[in-house]
Amino acid sequence: MSERRENKTILQLERVSRFYRTRGNVFRGGGRLVVALNEINLSLRAGEIFGLVGESGSGKTTCGRLIVRLEEADQGRITLNGEDITHLKGKKLREYRRQVQMVFQDPYQSLNPQVTIADSVAEPLITNKVGSPLDHMERVLKVLKTAGLSPAEDYVYRFPHQLSGGQRQRVAIARAIVLEPSLLVADEPTSMLDASYSAQIFEILQGVRDKMGATIMFITHSMASARYLCDRIGVIYRGHLVEQGPAEQVINAPQHPYTKALIDATPKFGRAAEVPTYGTLLAAERPANSSAGCPFFRRCALAERLLCAGTYPPWRQVGPEQVALCHLLEDAAPAVSTG
């Protein structure tokens, strides 16, 4: 799939940050500021599947929500095809959302239980006043087929409770692609599903990319699924992007200690001999005095006290199109751009 990768940038995040304030109370006073995303630079190329990999709480879902504009960035700029969408409002925002859609994690919660599948999938067409009611059904049947629900006629008058989890997630995908968006954000679409269904969802997402030409951001905690589905991968740790590059390179030759730790922790499924063990994760967290240093300092087995605790690491160019945020990659040249 990599040979048909284009270089045209469709979506760009420039130094995007998002903060949350925890709720204070009578005893503790005001809330604490939590950095969900810290100066993220990312760009998605037209027609690619980009994997954003990280643990829970790493900010990967927040990143997706900023892109579909369910939330607004506190700092930085997000552009789609060169147009600034960071703070769009009203009519312009509605127009933007026709181009950018999201598939949520939990198919048991993302569909209205009282609405038939046909109405659920047609709803985006109605709210966006696309086409006449007469051709809505035709479009609904078409996207249900694209989403692997065939014969589609059997599903249109069913309710969500009559479907399995895998089928519901396919309806959620159908609903997201019915407006033919140019960008689809899929937030852990398979984490609630059994393996046999996940493989179907992967196939459908590939189909959406190949047939509809959509660009996909695939948010996941699984390195193995990212390897399977994605052209490029970004690894995110506690709100900081720490490594980015072509999928095969990041997985076969990871450079950042956190990426290495993630690969160590992934079940090898009897293929342990074929994957090196890196041992970059510290067994117990070490204390850090300042928050100015490397975000991974507390858990990094390789960290050097003075350098890593005190200063924020630079981006290094560690391979063709592969960059990592680490002090210890001294041999590598400074990265030209992290986007």
């Binding site: 393996a195 046999s196 996940s198 399977y228």
Partner: peptide, 19 residues
């Protein structure tokens, strides 16, 4: 079918076979 529907980290990147 179950084994081949799981993505892996190592080995050839074969096509997953959904059931």
């Amino acid at each position: 079918a179950l084994v081949s529907s799981f993505p892996t980290l190592a080995g050839p990147k074969t096509k997953l076979a959904p059931i």
